[in-house]
Design a protein around this nucleic acid. Sequence first.
DNA 1: AATGAATGAGACTTCATTCAT
DNA 2: AATGAATGAAGTCTCATTCAT
Lengths: 219, 219, 219, 219
Amino acid sequence: MSLQTKITPQDSRSARQDKRKADSRQRLLAAARQLFVERGYHDTRPQDISRLAGVGHGTFYLYFSDKQACFQDFVEQAQEEVDALILARLATCKTHEQRVYGVLEVSMDFVKENPGVLKAAWAGHQLMSRDNPDGTTTPSIVDQWAARWAEVIARGQKAGLIWDDYDPRIIGYAVLMVTSAVSTGDPEVWGDREHFLTNLTRFVLRGLAAPGVGNALKI
Amino acid sequence: MSLQTKITPQDSRSARQDKRKADSRQRLLAAARQLFVERGYHDTRPQDISRLAGVGHGTFYLYFSDKQACFQDFVEQAQEEVDALILARLATCKTHEQRVYGVLEVSMDFVKENPGVLKAAWAGHQLMSRDNPDGTTTPSIVDQWAARWAEVIARGQKAGLIWDDYDPRIIGYAVLMVTSAVSTGDPEVWGDREHFLTNLTRFVLRGLAAPGVGNALKI
Amino acid sequence: MSLQTKITPQDSRSARQDKRKADSRQRLLAAARQLFVERGYHDTRPQDISRLAGVGHGTFYLYFSDKQACFQDFVEQAQEEVDALILARLATCKTHEQRVYGVLEVSMDFVKENPGVLKAAWAGHQLMSRDNPDGTTTPSIVDQWAARWAEVIARGQKAGLIWDDYDPRIIGYAVLMVTSAVSTGDPEVWGDREHFLTNLTRFVLRGLAAPGVGNALKI
Amino acid sequence: MSLQTKITPQDSRSARQDKRKADSRQRLLAAARQLFVERGYHDTRPQDISRLAGVGHGTFYLYFSDKQACFQDFVEQAQEEVDALILARLATCKTHEQRVYGVLEVSMDFVKENPGVLKAAWAGHQLMSRDNPDGTTTPSIVDQWAARWAEVIARGQKAGLIWDDYDPRIIGYAVLMVTSAVSTGDPEVWGDREHFLTNLTRFVLRGLAAPGVGNALKI
DNA sequence: AATGAATGAGACTTCATTCAT
DNA sequence: AATGAATGAAGTCTCATTCAT
């Protein structure tokens, strides 16, 4: 008989309550994500989030100390998702070439699947960062993402596939800027998305490829 | 005899008033620029702008129909400055190579000289665009800037100096994203600015250079 | 055989429950007293009281119909304590002189031992009394205390030891105000407490003593 | 021709505006005083004060940084009034006897004319003082008033009219407590106010009078 | 043209109380 | 009896805009 089957009434109750509690938090976060993305930080009221989540106004403040904290949590969630996706993809990559392609693809896929999330997270982060007068700048989703690119680039340099006169952190940031263009650019303006992605991917790969390896990364 | 010396007393008065009026508007715009850049759109009140400009609170509304209009004017001003700089530079360029270099240099110089202006203009534009439900998306500073790059790239393609499988509009946007990294990146984080600029310039030029022209654009 | 040992299991359970119930109530009251004294009525939330008492938030409302009722109970408790102390002391007094001294001493001792309780009870009572629009002003701890003084003073007058042109209720109230100064006065400001008490005691006794009896009440 | 008659339009305008400004502040303070006295601090909303003053909700915050600041100003105003009254009276007093009587009379008159003001100021001050974590306890109206009594008592001691074994600060405080009883006591309970005042005055004077001077202070 | 006092809709947040478990 | 998540009315305060001077 496992210990699990011997749940006492209290455990059962608190377990159910915990579930309910986690539920509320999740519903709130989902609502927050939707609204922050749709309307932006300033045009989303805690009240709106609560209503969309189907809970009372006050419940919001049981899970977030204030509106900013809620936004931070939303950003963190997006951050973790992106990071997990990238790490998972990197784990399946054997060659450097695959890594570059992989992260590009994952980045663009995420941006495509979650239109506006990056934009919202980033725009909001700008607004927020000023309010951290203790000097502790919370690392933004962008910084973390850029760091992943830096890793990939550094490995590419060691393998002789990427120009070794690049500073990985800087170029990682530049590459991220380009990929994030996908999110920032107005979908309706760019027309054919495949066309758009192909262009950006080519530009990035050509900018990275060390002399003589251009063929290897050809797409 | 210049036209200026022929003004009647009345004219003189109205001229002075015009000057004063233009003065107030200019002072307000300068103050707006400083504050929008320093604090962002939402944390800048018309009152703050007026105070910094040294005029009464109500005066603000003599020159701008509302806060948003003031912001639009700020963006437009920055836009015109950038555009004028780029056009002036392009006029002095004979070869394609010079053009690419030129716009890169001008872009980065502007961003260096006006830290935060692009960021502020852009971030604010995001917040604003939602409020245009009539479909008329005001072209942002970014769009216009990207258009200049598109021109340069298209000319480079005709000259055979830039990969001809690029869509100029898209790659123009991508290049802009990279150069704008200068403004977005935290100055203190990137350390040596020259190092930073060198890296970005190399990346852009290599990404653009058609096969076989790499040497020509070497830096 | 005591009654306690004869309880059946059921009795035992309900007895334990009663004890536990009384326990919870007592713990809540103790917590309420501490917090009302430390923070005042408005800055003490039922939640805080419950947490300090170590019971659930909802439990509070099993024992008090609302926050005000809890406060009333706190005041009542303090009231009963004071009254019991004064009555006990009066019971041991034979002469009028002893009574005056006795009540003074008890009053000041209570105030010394329970710093802030009188102040809190009184301040809170002020806030509350407005909410009794039916005219039934709940007698405050102050009123009750003053009543004891009035008794003592009336007896002193009969014995010829206290000016007989005093209205006992009024002077009882005045004496109470002076003794309560001990609680109202900032401990750190007054310095030596003995010095403080001696001064007040002298003032009261001299104010009361009928002509010619000054010596009897000398301290 | 006086300078006054030569008021320029600007002066005239700003003068009128200043008057209007001072007017609003005065109206707000008067409304605040009435409401704080009638309802107490916590049951008075800035909105209520504004409405009673006949100005908009936002105007309140043009004159007080927040609700607490408004309350502080109300207390200060009462404080200054009381102090001015006492000082004015003291200035007309030649003998010590007159001083004691004078301050007693002024105190009681003020309390009679401004029922509730002292109580409100004091009660509110209690609530507030906790919020001064920088250690700077704002001297309350009570402290200041007590200080005046201390002065009078010290002078009386020098003149041999008051027991010289009193600490003036302490007894000043005690006397104040008694006189403030007038404000704290429920008007309806005490009945005839003259009777009340006579009792308290006698008590105070007898408590103060040095041996042998009782006759001098007889009332 | 210029001013700045005035406005009030609306934002964020708290907290006494309820109720399903 | 005990719990603590949920509630929403109500409070404090801000700020873009107006208007009398």
